[in-house]
Design a protein around this nucleic acid. Structure first.
Ligand SMILES: [Mn+2]
Ligand SMILES: [Mn+2]
Ligand SMILES: [Mn+2]
Ligand SMILES: [Mn+2]
Lengths: 218, 218
DNA sequence: ATATATTTTTAGACTAGTCTAAAAATTATT
DNA sequence: AATAATTTTTAGACTAGTCTAAAAATATAT
């Protein structure tokens, strides 16, 4: 049996290690999970014993195939629940993360596959992140961050890197949503802020914002 | 903060004490929760400290107003999720209990109230049990058990006392569902079995079955 | 009313997960 | 290459929840 805590660690290791492809430090996990390094050491030992991870002292940790499989399944559940909350229960995209954090641990194959069908097999969650299918496969979307967009080009907003409520509310108040078209008007060399056009409005966004918004060229 | 385990104990005490109106024994809780009496003693002490229950050594336990409030809220969530699973995700009524047992612990006011609205404020769960509203109020349905029905009278099936998968599947295979009309044809004094008519079919059911099916006179 | 049976509580131990403080290993700097 | 800084691990303690076995209280039967 896998515990809720083990699932949360596995998911975090997956994300920190760029979808399970690289090794993750003890401290990085501690920061991300809001625990202490000593707790992390204990847990990665346990994950290693249970074959979810490979761990050698002082060498960081990577997920095994089994661990990656577990991670992808939790992410599938998390994102499907987020879609459900937004599409069916009128949550806004900045409210769903916290609830999905709990719903993702409900263990029922039938529940999640029926939910997937009920939502008509969505490919992306409300933040533009891809939803793995039943087999754990998901498409990588072609995207760049706003900070790397070219002046003069036109893009479509396809996702966010920061799903925090404050960032999402900022986007709301500036009429930036998934699917919104954005034209890059000017890049200010001094502070890397950008002047962009959204639906005939010109706004200036900081570098901070530009680093957290994903775009696709159109 | 209330824990998942505390919630489960509170809910069970509520049910065992006829919706929180009577005192409950340590052993009864142990049996219902599949734990040992010693664990129950520890827990009721804790519930008492946290003001969810009144407990005096060797005297059994009752819920406080606060405890009853918590219980009703969990029951509301449990039953709303059951409706969701049946109505929206094509679960059958014998599959929902186990999943709802977990979903009932998700803590989000908005989630449950929006779910309620999404389901159009159902009054009963798939087993005929009443669903408390936002304020914790719910109607008591007039009902008797089949075992106490009168020979010759006509009834409508309105609920089950046993929500186990095996009993519900038995009902399915005998075409008994909520809303089904039943006429009592004969009561066998020897073993208290009953001959009943359902949709022009005559079947015989055991006393065991007769004790777990709720009817309403029509 | 006394003995017996049953129920309940206590005592002490165990696991999962967490923490602080100290020790050990690794990495960076001179 | 030696020292300093940083990261990671260990040691030991704590809480929540559980268990077994024994003690204490209550209920039942003679
Ligand atoms: Mn989580
Ligand atoms: Mn998301
Ligand atoms: Mn439960
Ligand atoms: Mn039910």
């Amino acid at each position: 049996m896998i515990t809720l805590t083990e699932e949360n660690y596995i998911k975090e290791i997956y994300h920190l290690g760029s979808n399970g492809s690289t090794s993750v430090n003890t401290n990085a996990i501690a920061v991300a999970m809001n625990t202490k390094a000593s707790s992390v050491t204990d847990m990665v030992k346990k994950l290693s014993e249970k074959k979810y991870a490979d761990y050698k002292k002082y060498q960081g940790v990577t997920l095994t195939d089994l661990g990656r499989h577990v991670a992808v399944n939790i992410i599938r559940k998390h994102r499907l629940w987020e879609v459900f909350l937004v599409e069916k229960l009128n949550f806004s995209w900045d409210e769903v993360h916290e609830v999905a954090e709990h719903l993702e641990h409900i263990k029922s194959e039938k529940l999640i596959n029926q939910l997937d069908a009920f939502l008509e097999f969505p490919k992306h969650d409300p933040h533009g992140d891809p939803i793995p299918d039943k087999e754990g496969k998901f498409q990588h979307i072609e995207k760049i961050i706003l900070a790397q967009a070219e002046v003069g080009s036109k893009y479509k907003c396809v996702g966010v890197d920061d799903s925090s409520s404050s960032f999402l509310k900022y986007l709301d108040s500036n009429k930036i949503a998934l699917g919104t078209n954005i034209t890059i008007l000017h890049k200010e060399p001094y502070d890397n802020s950008l002047k962009i056009e959204i639906e005939d409005c010109e706004i200036v966004v900081s570098q901070n914002v530009a680093k957290n918004l994903y775009l696709k060229k159109i």
